[in-house]
Write a protein that binds this DNA or RNA. Structure first.
Length: 449
RNA sequence: GUGGUUGUAGCUCAGUUGGUUAGAGCACGGGAUUGUGAUUCCCGGGGUCGCGGGUUCAAGUCCCGUCAGCCACCCCA
């Protein structure tokens, strides 16, 4: 092996280095996720960054192994895998204490995940993903509450119904729609796979593949018609479609779901679209995806109901509904829409802007006093920064202070006195060094008269 | 795993038909001058041109390989 070749020191494929401004943008998104979850009554949890590989093959089969990072400890026998998703950990944690947990249990997390796939736009090998789950409640109200939480986080980031669409569907509705058109239950999964491709393949390809699954052209076109367009729940055509699709049983579930979505104030964001089925085999009821409104970018979020999964992981039969929202696509959409705030606005929102930026007026006694001033402000609980520049150009130093986003600039004049300048208003007043912290905390300047 | 495309300072780029010590702006650091929020001027650090090989008297420039980025397919928890 050659030693020290430069590529050894590049970050691994599909990972990101977060410089201060980059990390602040992630924190901005995470803060919206976290505060929204908490407001909606979810408790934050987390699990290990890696799990036993078996935990993932139980749900997804051996085929998943090539999609994740797995490893063995040197000398060890068990195989581990970096977590590619949270649901198995969640199920394991819930199952372990199911008897003691309330119904519903509402949990969220927002950690990093790892998938061994080729990176492309909107998809990396390490990313953050927000997960919210409601366990132990099988009502349409729980489905709606979950969707509302996802929507509110997007709203907190400045997005609106004009920017994104929540497209809602239901596995059972799609199954009934297929059944009334002669599809046998054992073919449902094959059909879901095909339905998931609508939008990626053209109409002829769809009909070809539908015929391959034993559907005649006429019915295939009829199904396609139903799938391609997202419609408003209130539209008469939606009602007709629902009663047709659900074999006359009536769109009872959707009526309840939409009433709850309206009550939560998010119905404007939501569309009904039976074409949303999600690829995953384990969904059992409602499924939804959130996309940029024009269809640009990958899905911002996706989720649904998985009433059998907790049992699969050894827990008691427990209805559950959840979603995941990654930071990568969300960041792209915010940037596309011009909704990613400037660095300093983000810092303001995160509370990381300095309270004071301390500079010297260039005299020897001020230079000597500067460190002490900074120290006293910090001990007083203030976020104080200082100039490390050697220049005595006060204008340049104030420029640095302004660039730091600090509320005040302290210009040290001597070992006892300073000028306190409000950088937002430009006002300035002399203040004894002993009183600086008090005035800065007050957020004001002393006025002469 | 497959295909396309790109690769010169931290960033945006310039580098004639291959020709000597590889440039600019911004950013960063220092100094001078105005004592107060992009003043002006001067100076500086930083690149083995992604990496490796080949052709040539001579390669940032041509050829091959490789790595990485981006985009798409596959897949998408």
């Amino acid at each position: 092996m050659t030693q020290g070749s430069s590529h050894s020191f590049q970050a691994p494929t599909g990972t990101r280095d977060f410089y201060p401004a980059d990390l602040a943008r992630v924190r901005y998104i995470e803060q919206a996720w976290r505060t929204t979850s908490i407001r909606h009554g979810f408790d934050e949890i987390d699990g290990p960054t890696f799990e036993h590989l078996d935990l993932y093959t139980v749900k997804s089969g051996e085929g998943i192994v090539s999609e994740l990072f797995s490893f063995q400890r040197a000398g060890g026998e068990r195989t581990y895998a970096l977590r590619p998703e949270f649901t198995p950990t969640l199920a394991r944690m819930f199952a372990a204490r199911a008897g003691a947990l309330p119904r519903p249990t509402k949990w969220f997390c927002a950690p990093n995940f790892f998938r061994a796939e080729r990176p492309q736009r909107g998809r990396l090998r390490e990313f953050r993903q927000w997960n919210c789950d409601i366990l132990g409640d099988d009502s349409p109200a729980a489905d709606a509450e979950l969707i509302a939480c996802a929507v509110d986080a997007l709203a907190a980031l400045g997005l609106g119904p004009e920017h994104v669409k929540v497209r809602v569907s239901h596995r059972k509705a799609v199954e009934q729609m297929l059944a009334t058109r002669g599809v046998r239950p054992e073919m449902f999964q094959a059909w879901f796979t095909l339905l998931d491709k609508v939008g990626k393949i053209n109409n002829d390809q769809f009909i070809d593949q539908a015929r391959g699954l034993g559907m005649d052209t006429q019915r295939a076109m009829n199904i396609l018609q139903m799938l391609v367009t997202a419609t408003r729940f209130e539209e008469p055509t939606t009602q007709v479609m629902l009663s047709e699709a659900m074999g006359g049983q009536g769109p009872d579930y959707f009526k309840k779901l939409w009433a709850e979505l309206r009550a939560a104030g998010v119905a404007d964001w939501c569309w009904l679209n039976l074409g949303i089925v999600r690829g995953l085999a384990y969904y059992t009821g409602m499924v939804f995806e959130i996309h940029e409104a024009s269809g640009a970018e990958r899905a911002i979020a996706g989720g649904g109901r998985y009433d059998q999964l907790i049992e699969l992981f050894g827990g008691p039969p427990t209805p559950a509904v959840g979603f995941g929202m990654g930071d990568v696509v969300l960041s792209l959409v915010l940037q596309d829409k011009g909704l990613m705030p400037a660095d300093q606005q983000i810092a303001a929102r995160l509370g990381t802007l300095p309270d004071a930026f301390v500079v010297s007026n260039g005299t020897p006694e001020a230079d000597a006093a500067l460190s002490g001033v900074v120290g006293s402000l910090r001990r007083a609980g203030l976020h104080a920064r200082r100039s490390y520049k050697a220049t005595r150009n006060v204008g340049k130093l104030i420029q640095d202070a302004a660039r730091s986003g600090a509320r005040f600039c302290v210009i040290v004049e001597s070992d006892a006195g300073a000028s306190l300048k409000n950088l937002a208003t430009g006002e300035q007043a002399p203040v004894p060094i002993a009183d600086l912290a008090r005035w800065i905390k007050l957020g004001e300047l002393p006025h002469a008269g």
